[in-house]
Nucleic acid binder design. Structure first.
Lengths: 354, 354
DNA sequence: CTGAAAGCGCTTACAG
DNA sequence: CTGAAAGCGCTTACAG
């Protein structure tokens, strides 16, 4: 019981070299050592099953090969982002520590006390994480601590979050291109009155604003048309009521683009309650291609983002900042493409059938 | 830039005490120090914003306040389990490091190369995690390494996994009670021919076997009836085909209990293809109450597990093993209750209406 | 090509 | 009640 794991000293002794030689050789800094010596040391290490104590080397070199990831597994999009981060980190032999605050049930309307979040950040800094990847609401909530992190040369990458003045590297979907695909599709189907439904407003949802603006511009430039917007108000607003209002009246839109698949589901519900059939009376397009999108009925036409790629890019960016000490360059705004997936929720505008 | 964080030495100097005094007082080992001294030290620490370098103290004491969690955020059940673990760890000022292998798309049929899993375990051991919480397939895959972990006094808790000979503490749902609730419900509805559908067989799915056995026994003891079982064969078997076969023929069951909500969704699909209406022709009960269960149509009657509680219990158990060095006692098999949630997928047996 | 020595930032007997 | 000293398991100038 309580078997001690082998020490570097043990390896050195077995290989008949000094501690420092063993240390250097096993770190790969073996340029100036005899081939034979290197072999002996490596064999001894293998044989004893020695593993570097990362706490020690981390303390001395600052390199813990660990990063902090504040992203909740909120839906399949974010789970895939996490998977991308994990995969990329594994390649680089880094370990991501993923933490989040609060309950999934209340996730989208996140506003945990800032204090708690700082406690989490500190818990990770105490373990000397070398950088952070943040979910928009966290990025938002803690952005005023970024300068402090930077002073400690702990870089930060945010996903899907932009501020007027850039304060970190960011990775996001190419909203301009993605929304243009949607606009083109709906216009090809001869829709003229097109609506946009977004989730409750929150300061962290800069992606929603961006999505709406780009979409509006695309509609305008492609058809000269104007968007009918239903931005669900501040938290607590009843989404269904707002959407039903948008879909009522003689000038109701014949097609609706939802900010995400979650809102698309609300649109389905509102349509059902109003007796509107999708897609015959109303075309619906979502965004994200979440796990449930293809099993909605009718199956949802939506923009398939590439969350794994987004996660991988974020990790890559962060690791570059960390390893190359490229902490100096200007902040980057990486964009990942997305594709339109045509399913059964879009059809030619009803007007054109009359 | 690159501001150095304060050292304990700085605190000691500011408070005018020795390094060792400062160290002890700030660890809470202040019994023998003057009140005034303690106050001075704590104030100095506060003022400088000193934080203990956990790498250093971890290296010396073995206490890193970190545990390893190998659980993928596979569905809302596991996400909630994770949330429970995180919450409990936060309370105890522990940090869980969550890692997993492979892609979510292929999660349920997990069989990643063992090597990769060991790499992950080692990455965590290199950072001196004090214990592990494992998802069944991982627990299964790496169980032969448990003795080694035990030798290093790294306790393990498994969720939803049992072996003939217990090899670790476990936390699971009280299957006996939960399945009895289902049996009672269906029998109250006068169902006589009751089926059970389980996911593809895999050695790690001891919970599925347990669920089936307990359910069969409950049916028998409550009604003297016999279960019609459709155990979906080994990986690769087409679930839909198997379920349709179960639901065909003159003696088809009038009610089906699915091993999880995922399988319940398959039963819905099979029923639709066979022209059977749920619940009029066929009652369906799921297990887990996953996020999509209430929005299935009809809304699924299912057993609501308590994943947050399961996660919290697992964390509590692990922390007890860690802190009390209770590594000696016999392995525990903690059971968490579950409740039947009645929705719209169950109705009286059709026979009784004739 | 290799080793003895100092040091990383703490903790902990031990001595007063 | 408090401090000087040794030590945790490594890394890294520095010296040969």
């Amino acid at each position: 019981m309580a078997e001690r794991s082998p020490r570097l000293k043990d390896v050195a002794e077995l290989a008949n070299v000094s501690l420092s030689a063993a240390s250097r050789i096993l770190r790969g800094d073996d340029g100036r050592f005899g081939e034979e010596t290197c072999r002996r040391v490596r064999e001894a290490s293998q044989k004893l099953g020695w593993r570097r104590n990362l706490l020690v080397s981390g303390m001395q070199t600052g390199k813990t090969s660990t990063i902090g990831v504040m992203i909740p597994p909120y839906d399949s999009f974010w789970v895939s982002v996490l998977t991308g981060i994990h995969a990329k980190c594994a390649e680089a032999d880094y370990l991501p520590i993923t933490v989040w605050l609060g309950d999934l049930d209340h996730m989208p309307l996140f506003d945990a006390p800032e204090e708690e979040g700082l406690r989490l950040i500190n818990r990770m800094l105490d373990r000397r994480v070398e950088g952070f990847i943040l979910w928009p609401p966290f990025g938002m909530a803690y952005s005023h601590h970024f300068p402090e992190l930077r002073d400690h040369t702990v870089p930060v990458v945010m996903i899907d979050h932009h501020t007027d003045e850039p304060i970190s590297d960011t990775v996001a979907t190419n909203e301009e291109h993605a929304t243009r695909l949607v606009a083109r599709h709906l216009i090809d189907l001869r829709h003229k009155r097109i609506g946009f439904v977004s989730s409750p407003e929150a300061p962290s949802k800069t992606w929603a604003v961006e999505r709406q603006n780009h979409f509006a511009r695309a509609i305008e430039s492609l058809s000269g048309g104007r968007l009918v917007v239903a931005r669900v108000g501040p938290e607590g607003t009843d989404e269904l009521v707002v959407v039903k209002k948008l879909l009522s009246g003689p000038d109701r839109p014949t097609a609706v683009f939802a900010a995400t698949d979650h809102e698309a589901a609300s649109v389905y519900r509102a349509a059902a309650e109003l007796g509107l059939r999708v897609p015959n009376d109303l075309s619906v397009v979502g965004f994200a291609d979440l796990d449930f999108a293809s099993s909605m009925s009718p199956a949802l036409t939506t923009v398939r983002q590439r969350p794994r790629e987004i996660g991988a890019r974020a990790a890559t960016l962060l690791l570059e900042r960390i390893t190359k000490q490229a902490s100096e360059g200007p902040y980057l705004d990486a964009r990942v493409e997305a594709d339109l997936v045509l399913r059964d929720s879009t059809a030619p505008a009803p007007d054109t059938l009359r």
